[in-house]
Amino acid sequence: MTVAVSSLKFLIWAVAVLVLVSGKRQKREYSVLSWNDCGGPDKVLHIESLSISPMPVILPGVMRITSSAHSSATISAASLELTIKRSTFLGYITVPCISNVGSCTYDDMCTLVDTMERENWAGISRQVSNQIRGFLQSAGISSTCPVPPSEINVTEYPFQMPELPSILNFLADGNYRVNFRIRDRSSHRVLGCFNVNMSLKKEETRGWFFFRRR
C-alpha cells in the first residue's frame, strides 16, 4: 500500500511538472500590466499606481517600473508569501518553489535582500538583490528593518531582468498571475496584499541564416 501511494504521488507530481513545462497558454499575452489591491481595511502597505514596460517582460532584458506607493506604519518584522500561477491548457497551475524561486514563503523580509545576495539562489538572486537594493536606495528606503512610514515615487526605473538558468527555463515564457502577501511575523496580520497579472517572454535571437529563434 505504501509503495502504491508513493507511486501515485510521484505520478501526480510528474504530470504537474509536464503541464508547467509544456502546457500551452490559454490566451494572448498581456499587453499591459494588470494589478489590484487585495489588502484588508487595516493594511499598512498601499499602492496607488503601478506599471511595467515592456509588456510582455523580455528575459533577459530591461524592465522599467513606474509606481507610486506608501506605507502608513513602521514595519519591524514581516514575512512574504509569494504565489505564482502559470497559464496552461488545464488552467492556471501553481509554480512550485524551486531553489527559493517560485511560489515560496520568505520568513524574514528584513534580511531577505542580504540573504538573496549571500546565497545567490539559482545563480540569479545576487544580481536581483543588488538591483532591489538600488531601487530602494533611490527612493530613500532602507532594505533592512525597522522601516518607518515611507513613500515611493519612481518613473521608469530600469531593472535588468536576468537570463534564467536551465532549471528555471520553463518559467521564461508564459502568462502569470502573482499574489504577494506580506504578514507581520508576530501577529500574522496581513500588512499588504497585491495581485499582478503579467506575461514573460524569452528574448528573440537570430541564429544561422538570420532565422529568429527563442
Rank of each mutant, 00 (worst) to 15 (best):
I47M: 09
G174N: 09
P56C: 12
I167C: 03
F10R: 08
G102V: 09
N120A: 08
V44R: 00
Y106K: 01
T144H: 14
T74K: 12
P146N: 10
D37Y: 02
V196F: 14
L112P: 00
G192W: 08
R214W: 14
I12W: 08
I141A: 07
C193S: 15
V62E: 14
I98E: 05
V190P: 00
L11G: 02
N36L: 09
V3T: 11
R126S: 15
N175C: 10
Q160N: 14
K9Y: 06
F170N: 11
R118L: 13
P158A: 08
P60D: 08
S125G: 05
H70S: 13
L82I: 12
G61Q: 05
T205Q: 10
N100P: 12
P54Y: 09
T144E: 07
T94S: 13
L191Y: 03
E117A: 14
S150C: 09
S150D: 03
V15P: 00
S34F: 01
S68F: 13
M109S: 03
S143Q: 06
N175E: 12
P165R: 10
R212A: 14
F209A: 14
G61I: 07
I98A: 04
L80G: 10
Y92H: 13
D108A: 07
Q26L: 13
S53F: 03
V101A: 08
C104D: 07
R28H: 02
V44H: 02
P56L: 13
